[in-house]
């Protein structure tokens, strides 16, 4: 994971502030923003911010974590449909994993996602907590 600095920095508008793109053709919200809309070729979008509340569409509890996440396991991770459109895959935190349920209402919070090893940068982003 070393050398992640530039990659991390570049995505701050999304990871920190939920900046997305709304299609001027269909009104669909794309997160992260895209240059071209799948299906219709539309290239006109307006910048919007994700609404920070939504609903859990599906989830699981990760008990075998990839490198960097070992000390966090078990953790719940799921797909969230946000109220104003747009979907994210992220961890459901501040809840005992056995209480997580499909359909539950959640709210986005700013959290630390990981560390780039012991001496690298801290990696921040979005997680969700029960509403």
């Amino acid at each position: 994971m070393s050398g992640i600095t530039a990659r991390y920095w570049r995505e701050m508008p999304q990871r920190y502030r939920g900046e997305a793109g709304k299609s001027l053709s269909t009104g669909k919200v794309f997160f992260p923003p895209r240059l071209v809309e799948p299906g219709n070729g539309n290239r006109r979008f307006k910048p919007v911010k994700l609404e920070y509340t939504g609903e859990l569409l599906t989830f699981t509890i990760i008990r075998v974590a990839p490198s960097g996440f070992e000390k966090q396991s078990p953790y719940a991770i799921g797909i969230i449909e946000l109220k104003g459109g747009g979907r994210i895959t992220t961890q459901i935190t501040d809840i005992p994993v056995e209480n997580v349920k499909i359909g539950m209402k959640v709210r986005v919070e700013f959290r630390k996602i990981n560390d780039d090893g012991h001496e690298g940068i801290h990696l921040y982003g979005y997680k969700v907590v029960p509403e």
Partner: peptide, 16 residues
Amino acid sequence: PAPDQDVITMSVEAAR
């Protein structure tokens, strides 16, 4: 603090 919380994350939430 949970393992995913630190001064930065709590400051952001309080500031928001």
